Amino acid sequence: MAKDLLLTLEDTPGEGARVGEALGNAGVNIEGLCAVVRDGRSIVHVLVEDVPAARAALDGAGIRVEGETDVFVSSPISDNDMDTPGRFGTLARALGDAGINIALVYMASGNRIVLATSDNARAQELLQSTM
């Protein structure tokens, strides 16, 4: 099962390369990635399948994993459906109407959506019927 790993890096050239190289050298594929810079720091979310290998590789590169989150990763969504205006609004509305809060969302490889919610199991059930 894929998990989201939270990293905080310096906002300097080469930090992304350190993450990619550490994971790549360990044979860990990055399934999804989201990074945002704020106040001189990069907040990075990395989706990986092999969490123990990813943690070991990042630790070996001096990169601390600050958090690990259970996420729901959607099935692949067709290009036509993914690129439809309002698609995310429809998905988010279905969750909101069900009282499910979205804590984290980003795109993953293969036209998949990564979500961490207040109820991942219920979110997965709801979204499978709308995707």
Rank of each mutant, 00 (worst) to 15 (best):
K3R: 12
D4K: 06
L6V: 13
E10G: 05
D11W: 07
E15A: 10
E15N: 07
G16S: 13
R18E: 10
R18K: 15
V19T: 04
V19N: 00
V19K: 01
A22L: 13
N25W: 10
G27Y: 11
V28A: 10
N29H: 14
N29G: 14
I30G: 10
G32A: 05
C34Y: 14
V36C: 05
R38Y: 12
D39P: 02
G40H: 09
R41Q: 07
H45T: 02
L47S: 04
E49I: 11
E49M: 14
V51Y: 01
A56C: 11
D59L: 09
D59Q: 11
G60F: 14
G60E: 15
A61H: 13
G62K: 13
I63G: 01
I63R: 03
R64K: 15
V65H: 08
V65G: 09
E66T: 08
G67F: 10
E68W: 07
T69D: 10
T69E: 13
D70G: 08
V71M: 10
S74Y: 04
S74K: 05
S75I: 07
S75D: 15
I77M: 05
S78T: 08
D79E: 05
D79P: 01
D81H: 01
D83K: 10
P85A: 08
P85T: 08
G89N: 12
G89R: 08
G89Q: 09
T90M: 02
T90F: 00
A92C: 07
L95F: 01
G96A: 10
D97Q: 14
A98D: 06
G99T: 06
I100T: 09
I100R: 08
I102V: 04
I102R: 00
I102E: 00
L104P: 06
L104N: 12
L104R: 15
M107A: 15
M107T: 15
M107E: 15
S109P: 08
G110V: 14
N111I: 04
N111A: 09
I113H: 05
I113C: 07
V114R: 05
L115C: 05
A116S: 13
T117L: 04
S118K: 03
D119V: 12
N120P: 06
N120G: 09
A121K: 07
A121W: 04
R122E: 15
A123M: 04
Q124R: 11
L127C: 01
S129K: 06
S129V: 06
